[in-house]
């Protein structure tokens, strides 16, 4: 039983406990980021002039290293999960805002006109027309944000074992146990792949109305938006 998945007692957790912790640390910020991005993106759609500055701010925030966030946040939120989650949520905005704006803008004008003419008010138009039609773009954004968040969580080990599976990296180095490092790296990769696959399934379920074949191609991060895709790939540096 012990052996492969056994981990040092200083982590006060099992391997599977760490997996769950890792998922929570990664996914809660993605959800929070999406919740913030939804109204923000809608504002950018309504007020066109707002979009470029918002995009600029999200990009600048994305360029701030997480360590810098930790230094500032630790005074307020301490060595807690919250301190890890806040920067992750902020980073996800750089993917979500453009994905949502592009998704909502991709709704054909005549569809919106028809909705207005049938007496759907602005809220109904948003919930019943724009969001569902933007779903493929939103999910493409979710995939990028989720995968990047899962890989970024590990950095939380820097503020005292708040990095989920990332904590094993630290221990692996301290105890000279390559097995722990492998457990961390492979575990993280498997989580990312599984989460991504789950989102692909979700998209298929949510969009029976999409012509098949077009949606089947695996969307590169570029499908959400070309520019932020590049920084996403550099996450390992954080």
């Amino acid at each position: 039983m012990s052996g492969l998945f056994e981990i040092p007692s200083d982590l006060q957790n099992t391997y599977w406990g760490l997996v769950v912790l890792h998922l929570r640390l990664a996914l809660v910020p993605v959800a929070a980021g999406l919740l913030v991005a939804l109204p923000l993106a809608q504002l950018c759609v309504r007020l066109r002039w707002l979009y470029p500055p918002v995009l600029w701010v999200t990009t600048v925030l994305y360029a701030v290293p997480s360590l810098a966030f930790f230094v500032v946040l630790i005074d307020y939120t301490g060595q807690t999960e919250t301190t890890v989650m806040i920067p992750l949520a902020v980073y996800s905005l750089v993917v979500f805002v453009p994905a949502l704006v592009d998704g909502v803008r991709s709704v054909p004008q005549e569809t919106m006109d028809a909705a207005t003419a049938m007496g759907l008010g602005p809220l109904r138009r948003y919930l019943q027309v724009q969001l569902p039609i933007a779903a493929p773009a939103i999910i493409a954004g979710l995939r990028v944000a989720t995968v990047s968040s899962i890989s970024l969580v590990s950095v939380g080990m820097l503020i005292g074992n708040q990095g989920g599976l990332g904590n094993l990296l630290n221990d692996g180095m301290i105890y000279h146990q390559p097995r722990l490092i492998w457990l961390s790296v492979i575990g993280t990769a498997v989580l990312a792949i599984a989460a991504d696959a789950a989102l692909v399934v979700l998209r298929t379920v949510l969009t029976p109305w999409m012509p098949r074949g077009r949606s089947a191609a695996r969307p590169a991060p570029a499908e959400a938006r070309p520019e932020p895709a590049a920084p996403v790939l550099k996450d390992a540096a954080r």
């Binding site: 054909p108 028809a114 109305w209």
Partner: peptide
């Protein structure tokens, strides 16, 4: 309207 403007998701 022209092109019907149907709700593609319904």
């Amino acid at each position: 309207i022209q092109n019907a403007g149907l709700f593609q998701h319904r």
